[in-house]
Amino acid sequence: MDLSVFHRRNKSQVNEKDIIVTSNFATQLFFSYFKELVGKEVTVELKNDLAIRGTLHSVDQYLNIKLENTRVVDQDKYPHMLSVRNCFIRGSVVRYVLLPQDGVDIDILHDATRREARGG
């Protein structure tokens, strides 16, 4: 990302449209990546150490995640979600997502990353 664009302008000239475009770019790569994984099994590990496994149902630009057929990985320790089968996880509390290896081609991922590094 070329920050010099912002240095040349003063703050008042950075209009709302620019900010929206920038924030769209912000999670584009991983937003797209997770959309490709819809229907696959993932394990989401949260920042409170809770790990939830389930089928990826959907994702949004904040990387909020919806899982179906969920089960908590350590149910004896965490019986707090025993009656929950579908859940929404706020993107901000995610630490890791353990991914299936057959999700997206590695080369495509590398190319998308380089493209994002240039354009973002």
Binding site: N48, T70, S83, R85, C87, F88, R90
Partner: peptide
């Protein structure tokens, strides 16, 4: 909010 679960 961390998680919102649909209660069965």
């Amino acid at each position: 909010i961390s998680v919102v679960g649909e209660v069965d």
